[in-house]
Design a protein around this nucleic acid. Structure first.
Lengths: 196, 196
DNA sequence: GTTTTTTCTGAACATACGTTCAGATAACGT
DNA sequence: ACGTTATCTGAACGTATGTTCAGAAAAAAC
């Protein structure tokens, strides 16, 4: 046999990405074989190489797509008036965006060490830009006397780490709605950066 | 050849654990082979099986030792008077303890999915106990009117996630001392749980 | 209806994996 | 000095890995 009925690049391509995403998130990049991904798609392992030059590119593509989508979506978000409003928007946006993409988030944070140095640098750069976006908000707020933090760089990382934590425990069928979670976290973020 | 000069269980055993710890942290459990660990120790792969029944037990042992040490060390910590003092002690203890063991911490958070279900449950239980220790502090503070958080469970996870973030960026030769970092984080934690 | 292009199979490549075990040697107990 | 035990080697087991590629068949182009 060779080409099967109903085979199409537009279908197989995305399906490979979806399968790789799910399997990488579940078992880890190193523990997933190309044959497992292929089986999930319903294809032989060799066919994957019509869509990716190698396994590493598959991982890098997923992470890059995720980080770019994160930056682009935040950039397209309506901006508030003062720094306080923008920080609230950022907090709620971050939680919402990340809860919608648990697998992408998991991979983006766990599989950095499996990237080649060049790819690692590229993803780190994108992550740096996202952190810069938050730090700019904090700096604005500090300058306006709305916020008081000892170190904007540390505060940036602390806030992001805190918000990222949501993904490790939130379940859609849990006792709290997503909006309630957003509000609870915004409450803590707001107080953490507020003047004493 | 067989047994080499100067070979000893008391020496090889710990060296295997150290090598596994470092390699697992650097490359990930799935990406590290028993032969790599053996090479690091200066021994053949077969010799590892005098010290561990299999690779999985090696990982589990490292994680279990770490979590037990974490719980025991916190339990042995001098307890403060009011909930505020205890929370500060917890914050500083957590940062200090985790910065002293970056590899253990990394593994304990990244390799959970590579544990068998039984081992996973055991580690999750230990982690749950640590979270409970913090939540008890928060509850005490809320009851005493010292703290104000919407949800102690969420606040617990938020604080731990925030503090864990330190390990991802702190470098001993950076611009901030460990004590300065502790104080900066304690400042944010204190405000985050403070009454409005 | 014929040719060209796209998509896939199936086998193969060299290499690596976790684990086992008989046998060899060093250290220890007496 | 000798026997026993602890420790390690080196080879082997079956299985899996990422990747390549000639060839086959379906789809698209004409």
């Amino acid at each position: 046999m060779a080409r099967t009925t109903g085979s199409h690049s537009d279908i197989t391509g995305p399906r490979i990405q979806e399968a790789a995403l799910r399997l990488f998130a579940q078992h880890g990049y190193a523990a997933v074989s190309m044959r497992q991904i292929a089986r999930e798609v319903g294809v032989q392992a060799g066919a994957l190489y019509n869509y990716t030059p190698d396994k590493q590119s598959l991982l890098f593509g997923l992470m890059q797509d995720h980080m770019r989508a994160l930056l682009a979506t935040w950039a397209a978000q309506p901006q508030g008036r003062d720094a306080g409003a923008v920080l609230e928007a950022f907090t709620r946006f971050h939680i919402r965006f990340h809860l919608e993409r648990p697998d992408e988030v998991f991979i983006a944070y766990m599989e950095l060490r499996n990237l080649t140095p060049e790819n690692h640098a590229a993803i780190s750069d994108l992550r740096g830009r996202y952190e810069d976006a938050l730090e700019a908000i904090l700096k604005r707020g500090v300058a306006a006397g709305l916020f008081d933090v000892a170190d904007t760089k540390i505060a940036t990382r602390a806030v992001i780490a805190m918000l990222n934590g949501v993904n490790t425990w939130y379940r859609a069928d849990g006792r709290l709605s997503q909006t309630e979670v957003e509000t609870t976290y915004w409450d803590m973020v707001r107080k953490a950066v507020a003047p004493a």
